[in-house]
Design a binder for these strands. Structure first.
Lengths: 268, 268
DNA sequence: TTGCTTGTGAAAAACCGGTGAACCGGACCC
DNA sequence: GGGTCCGGTTCACCGGTTTTTCACAAGCAA
């Protein structure tokens, strides 16, 4: 649900022809990838936040096995595939038992390599599924994916599913302008029909609920002709507590409020 | 679901020499396995509660691909490995993209086949390995996994097997919202068909029995469009007069509030 | 000003979940 | 065999919620 398309991949190999051919395909598919020349400390691998690691165990020499074992043990969420030429059954079995998810012979068609990586990542995603998403806090807002809900000072602001997904998408992009088409594509899951106003309508509902619970912040900004941007901004003077209640009550009556501040492109 | 060592495996193949050699190894490793001669209805596969399926796609003929796709889609928890002779890159890629977890050529050493099956099954086992057989107490409710039953003040509330599993799943996630699809997937063991209302029906039965034995607690909360959340709440809370007034004022101001009434969200 | 984009409110349509009851297949008993 | 109980599944209905759609007002850029 989060990152739909691309896979983050690191390749440990030195076989330049294999690397160029594979690299081209990876580019084409839009995967983020980087090439490593040899063994790398575990914590650096962790920091890369990879989905998968493709390694030619022969470039690591004898310590390759130990490396493989440590990596598989230390990063449970990482898919590990060995891709190497000339291997025996015993080696392959050893690699797989040590924690590798697949063992591919060389030469192999890059398309198959990618399909195998996909298969490994797919399986792993299913297993890891939950728990990976912590709450996201921004200004007075707390967005909790595990509750499908956003909170202001511990209180739910009563978002529906779509509203929440929209807010989450915008908040994750924090500061970036997202085009309507992209928003629709990601939240609704399919292409936006020409003239569809759903995104606008949902932005309005979101703004209403945000405003109602967090009155002196503006969270969503309009970029004319493009889309929307999430970026909390404190607005106006600090309001006295008593007045606050009144303001909330009147919030709806204010038909012509300045809340919809359209922001010029240059402003960011 | 609870077997510790072995793997439950089904093999769809007709190659007798392969089957005998592999079978012997499987016996030796203590895996439960059965051989199927051809295509099998999905629900029968579900009933077998397998960890993995090893299939020679060539014995299924042209419908093999469709079978593969259906199985992978319907039973996400099942590891699927194709083992077949003479295949092209395109076929392998197709199989993997259709949802297969691995594609093994024939002939292959049975030890490698087993290592690959292990690799496929490994992650999901780790994820599913919930050891906590200890009773779980929440509000007036005591959930005892060893008895497949829940109790209120020492008295069984008479849950059926499914009802109990549903309750256990929800209670283990305590406070988290779980989507219907996930619930179905975990309790029923396969993918929920579109429009299936089983989860709802069981939640109702569960609520009835809980209510009957623990009248002033609400355990299961509905999240519209998403799923359910287990979070015991005492019912019949006394509302303070002043708060009451404010509530009424707000209710007036927000004449037709979009706040979901069905959902009662509280932060922890 | 003109043409296009966005905000807004309300109505229509689609969807969802609670509920009661029918239905189905297996186990058990007569 | 027939009958019954039991757990589970499916169905239809209903009221409520959510999403989509529409018409119009307001806003922005040329």
């Amino acid at each position: 649900m989060t990152n739909q398309a691309g896979i983050r991949l690191a390749v440990i190999d030195t076989d330049s022809s294999f690397l160029t051919v594979l690299g081209k395909r990876l580019e084409g598919a839009g995967w983020e990838h980087r090439v490593l020349a040899g063994s790398v400390p575990i914590d650096e691998l962790v920091a890369m936040k990879l989905n998968a690691l493709l390694v030619d165990i022969s470039v690591l020499g004898p310590e390759g096995w130990e490396f493989l074992e440590r990596v598989c043990g230390a990063i449970p969420g990482l898919g590990v595939l060995v891709c190497t030429s000339q291997s025996t059954v015993a080696q392959r079995v050893r690699g797989l038992r040590l924690g590798a998810d697949d063992w591919i012979g060389k030469p192999s068609h890059p398309e198959e390599v990618m399909a195998r990586i996909e298969a490994v990542v797919r399986r792993r995603k299913r297993a890891t599924a939950r728990e990976d998403v912590g709450p996201l806090v921004s200004a007075e807002l707390e967005i909790r994916p595990d509750q499908y809900q956003a909170f202001v000072s511990g209180q739910s602001i009563g978002l529906t599913r779509r509203e929440f997904e929209l807010l989450q998408l915008l908040a994750e992009a924090h500061g970036q302008v997202i085009e309507r088409e992209q928003i629709y594509q990601k939240v609704w899951g399919y292409a936006m029909a020409h003239g569809d106003r759903s995104v606008d309508v949902f932005v309005r509902k979101l703004r209403q609920k945000l405003q109602r619970h967090s009155a002196n912040w503006r969270y969503i900004h309009t970029h004319f002709g493009i889309g929307y941007r999430f970026d909390p901004e404190q607005v106006g003077t600090v309001v006295e507590p008593e007045l606050r209640v009144v303001e909330e009550q009147l919030a709806e009556a204010e038909a012509l409020s300045e809340e919809s501040v359209a922001v010029d492109l240059r402003s960011r």
